[in-house]
Design a protein around this nucleic acid. Structure first.
Ligand SMILES: [Mn+2]
Ligand SMILES: [Mn+2]
Ligand SMILES: [Zn+2]
Ligand SMILES: [Zn+2]
Lengths: 153, 153
DNA sequence: ATAATAATGAAAATCATTATCAATATAATT
DNA sequence: AATTATATTGATAATGATTTTCATTATTAT
């Protein structure tokens, strides 16, 4: 376990404290690459720290989102999902199966795509004077499994 | 006013009726290019048809979404937003100001972008056997107005 | 130590959305 | 036209996710 990491500094620099609940939540994300709901985070945290309450989990998720240590997604199923922000990866592409709700990461954009996005960003700056912080692409469709199950008719 | 339009047929073909509330909601979208929340739709409908209830608006929004006559978006502010589906336009790109919440349409993708997306789709089909129905791109950042207001520090 | 401030947990409150259910409207059948 | 079956509606209650409240506890500054 390394000393005060990345996240520690980012919080402290803005006057927040890296408390036990906050560390616990961050640990969950470090161990878990998935797109966790608040409730899922709560349960996972709860295994090691039964004392930590759901409200604190929500508060922590909001804080970490503001600090950009995690990213918040909504895939249209009525609950938000969170994922650790990578220092390196800046692209958040997801395939969402509209049948079973499965979410697949697609984090390997081609050169061509990266170029294309940069181009769009340029256009947005020029046209709308809009300063882009981040972007998400959601692809909606039918996953492999669901195609096999229902492809009949 | 033309006869039974596009939307009429699409509903009837699947056994649904094009009732007054449903027409009223569709009219709102035809007159209003924005990204309306359910409540906004309700208020706008209410001006002409005070009898139509909020529950029916929600039901209608869900139905029209399933029929793909409108599209549903969630920009992370806790409520869903809806927009008329165009027969032609198949791209739904939005700029979301994380400061003021403003949503700007960006519906003029370049050739290059279109190509790039097609390429990605191909990759997704190959790699994940995922069949894509639609996609959305959300750009998050700071709009022109908010840059001017807060750009100082 | 002491005082000031931030963070927490439990519970209540809020907000958007959905489900229930009796009443009404529409379509199909006689 | 009358009758039956089916779909839709409005009002209201219920739900589920998230936020707020508030008294208590932990952390930091003095
Ligand atoms: Mn992901
Ligand atoms: Mn739009
Ligand atoms: Zn699936
Ligand atoms: Zn703005």
């Amino acid at each position: 376990m390394p000393g005060p990491p990345w996240s520690h500094q980012r919080l402290r620099n803005r006057g927040f404290r890296l408390t036990l609940p906050r560390q616990a939540v961050l640990n969950i994300f470090n161990q878990n690459p998935r797109h966790l709901t608040a409730e899922e985070v709560f349960f996972l945290v709860h295994r090691n720290y039964p004392g930590i309450g759901l409200a604190t989990v929500y508060r922590t998720l909001n804080l970490l989102t503001q600090m950009r240590l995690i990213h918040k997604f909504n895939f249209g199923d009525g609950r938000n999902r969170y994922e650790l922000a990578s220092k390196f990866k800046k692209k958040y592409h997801h395939l969402v199966c509209v049948q079973c709700g499965k979410i697949i990461d697609y984090d390997s954009p081609t050169e061509k795509e990266a170029d294309s996005i940069k181009e769009i960003e340029k256009e947005l700056v020029n046209k709308y004077k809009f300063k882009i912080n981040s972007y998400q692409i959601h692809f909606y469709g039918i996953c492999k499994d669901c195609q096999n199950k229902q492809g009949g008719e």
